[in-house]
């Protein structure tokens, strides 16, 4: 019984985080379509609900009741598990993300994170790196050339941009002397990391865009030349699971940008709770990602590789060097 009391807070926290993350794509889909509409000087979805607010719900129901089609020569087992595999890492990374300082509830300290691990940042980078497996499985199991090409592009892109991404956060780790996410946030109490690490932030932000496969780096699903990329053959609920994981990656990148470079929950204006302030900053980053999508054209594939290896990686190394010189 005592064991149960010990794990009860964790179970509740897991349930809350999973529920919020599962529902979050609904408003995000609406937001993305609205932003797209207003940037292109049209109203966006307007019919279902007030200003189209219920449009994602209608779309969701449509996806649920559509036929679940599996290509005849597909590897059926891998084809079926691929969307689920794609969905796991975006949820798992939230294990290490803190949402605020510990709060006092019924006389006990309650951590506002699922796990306050020592190697938090490394864990997040590692788990976001294995997010590629769902894409690999989907592309290969579909037995379609567009899917395979899409997932080959995705693999090369993710591997290339993981390196500058990991290198760009080394400066942050040097400043806070820790890979623990709570320590990283508390090290920014006086001044946000983006002031010390402008190059690091730039590299991290751009490679984050590429990791999430958002425009201008969305070559794995370039609809002009690939149909739809790795999920060409998917329909119905399985397709919507891929959509879900893509939106979760965007949310997770927003969190990571804020926690690593924009002070986490520090610097809140008066009367605004810390967690709300953190979420507002994250929402700002999500908005920036969507704004970019309808502002920039897509890069060519050779340009994508050149940017990753010849611009971002040297910049990240330079950033480590400069941080080291200043700290020495």
């Amino acid at each position: 019984m005592e064991n149960l009391y010990a794990i009860l807070p964790i179970l509740i926290k897991v349930a809350v985080v999973v529920a919020v993350l599962l529902l979050l794509p609904l408003p995000l889909v609406w937001l993305e379509r609205k932003i797209a509409g207003h940037i292109q000087q049209r109203p966006g979805p307007m019919r279902v609900g007030w200003h189209g607010l219920l449009q994602p719900v209608a779309d969701g129901i449509k996806l649920l009741i559509k036929e679940d089609h599996i290509p005849s020569d597909a590897d059926r087992f891998l084809f079926k598990i691929a969307p689920v595999v794609a969905l796991v890492p975006p949820f798992v990374v939230f294990v290490a993300i803190p949402f605020g300082e510990p709060v006092e509830v019924f006389g006990t300290q309650l951590m506002l994170s699922l796990s306050n691990m020592n190697v938090g940042l490394l864990f997040i980078l590692a788990i976001s790196g294995i997010g590629i497996f769902g894409i690999i499985l989907a592309g290969w199991a579909s037995n379609s050339k567009y899917s395979v090409l899409g997932s080959l592009r995705a693999i090369a892109q993710m591997i290339s941009y993981e390196i500058p991404m990991a290198f760009s956060v080394i400066g942050v780790v040097m400043l806070s002397n820790s890979m623990n996410m709570m320590d990283i946030v508390s090290a920014q109490k006086n001044l946000w990391n983006v002031v010390y690490q402008p190059i690091g932030f730039f590299v991290f932000f751009v490679s984050g865009l590429a990791e999430a496969q958002r425009i201008p780096f969305d070559l794995p699903e370039a609809e002009g030349d690939l149909g739809a990329g790795y999920h060409t053959e998917y329909s119905g609920i399985r397709f919507s699971l891929f959509m879900l994981s893509e939106y979760l990656v965007v949310v997770f990148l927003g969190f990571l940008n804020v926690i690593l470079f924009f002070g986490g929950w520090h610097g809140a204006p008066p009367f605004v709770p810390e967690t709300v302030w953190l979420l507002l900053k994250v929402a700002f980053f999500i908005w920036v990602f969507m704004w970019f999508r309808f502002t920039f054209p897509r890069y060519r594939y050779d340009q994508l590789m050149a940017i990753g290896w010849k611009v971002l990686l040297p910049l990240a190394l330079l950033n480590i060097l400069i941080s080291g010189l200043f700290m020495f």
Binding site: L125, A126, I127, G129, I130, I136, I155, I159, E162
Partner: peptide, 11 residues
């Protein structure tokens, strides 16, 4: 996980 699963097996 980082090296073996995330990098080597992907390659």
């Amino acid at each position: 996980i980082f090296v073996y699963v995330g990098a080597i097996m992907v390659l």
